Computed example of a mutant assay.
Amino acid sequence: MRCAIPGCRATSEPDAPLPLCTPHLAEAGAWATRRDGVEDLLPAPCAACGARVGIRYPSGWACAVCEWRPGDVPDPDLAPPRVDVVYYLRFADRVKIGTTASPRQRFAAIRHEEVLAFERGDRRLERRRHEQFAGDRYPGSEWFRLTPLIATHIDALAGGRDPWDLHARWVSAALAARL
C-alpha cells in the first residue's frame, strides 16, 4: 500500500495506524509531540506537589498532576488558595464526616486516631454524605458507625493514597491555576 500523502510514492508501514510511510509518520509524531508534549519523568520532583511525572514540551516541562512549571516561583504575597474538603476521621469504630478548608487546624480540635480520606467538596457534599449514610449516624452528631458500606466508600476515595498527599496536590493545582 502506498503512503496516503499526495505525491509520495513510498510504501506505507504495514502496522501503522494510518497509511503513511516512515518519514511521514515521523513528521506526524513530531507534530503531535510539539502540540501535546510527551509524558516522562520530571528531572526532579515537582516543587509544588511532589509528583514525579511531567509533560515535556519543546518549550519546557510542566507537572502532569498540577501543571506547575519547574522554575516558577509562587508569589509569596499571595494567600494560599482555598481548597474545601470533606474529611473522614476515625476514632475507634466511629467515623466523623465533616468539611473544612484548613484540615490541620481543624483536626487539632477533634479527637481522632486516623485521617482516612479526603474528597474535594464543601458543605453541600458533606450534607449529601450525611444523607447517604444517615442509617449509620449517631443522632445529633457528625459521627457514624464504621460499617462495611462506609469503609467501602472511604477505600474508594483513598485509592491507596495518603490523604495528605492528595490534599497537597489539590492545593498546588489550585495555586498553579491562579498564576
Rank of each mutant, 00 (worst) to 15 (best):
G121R: 07
V171N: 01
F144R: 03
A10N: 14
R2P: 14
D122M: 01
P43Q: 11
G7F: 06
L166W: 07
C46Y: 10
L18M: 10
H24K: 07
A174Y: 00
G121W: 05
P6T: 14
R123N: 13
A47C: 11
R128L: 14
L149Q: 14
A28N: 06
R111C: 05
G60R: 10
R124C: 12
G50W: 03
A108E: 09
A4W: 08
D77H: 12
R56I: 01
A64Y: 02
G60N: 11
E131K: 13
E113A: 07
A32W: 05
E67A: 12
C46S: 06
H112Y: 06
L116W: 01
G29R: 13
F107L: 12
A26E: 15
D15R: 13
Y57D: 03
T100G: 04
A48F: 05
T33G: 13
V171A: 05
P81K: 03
A28S: 12
R56P: 00
G135E: 09
R104V: 08
P43E: 03
P80T: 12
C3P: 03
A64M: 05
A151F: 02
G60Y: 12
F91Q: 08
R111K: 14
A64N: 07
G37S: 07
V171R: 15
R169N: 01
E131D: 15
A168W: 02
P76N: 08
L157Q: 10
A158G: 05
R52I: 06
V38M: 12
Q132V: 03
L25I: 09
A51H: 11
G71N: 10
A51R: 09
E13A: 01
G121C: 09
L42M: 04
C63W: 07
V38H: 08
G37Y: 03
A174I: 01
D77M: 06
R90W: 08
E39M: 13
E126A: 04
P43N: 13
R34M: 07
D136M: 08
R34E: 15
Y88Q: 00
Y57V: 05
G121M: 06
L125K: 14
Q105W: 10
R90L: 09
E114I: 01
D36A: 11
F133Q: 03
C8T: 11
G50D: 07
A158H: 04
D136E: 14
R35Q: 14
R35G: 00
E67W: 06
R82D: 11
A168P: 02
I154S: 01
R82M: 08
G7H: 04
G50K: 03
F144G: 02
C3F: 11
T100H: 09
Y87W: 12
D40W: 05
G71M: 10
D75G: 07
L20H: 11
R34C: 11
W164Y: 05
E13G: 00
E113V: 04
L78D: 15
S141W: 06
A173Y: 04
R169M: 04
P19F: 05
A117W: 00
R161H: 12
L125C: 09
F118N: 00
A117F: 02
I5Y: 07
Y88G: 00
S141K: 08
L179D: 14
D75P: 01
D72V: 09
S12L: 11
R145L: 07
A47Q: 15
L78E: 11
L42C: 00
T11E: 10
A44T: 10
R169Q: 15
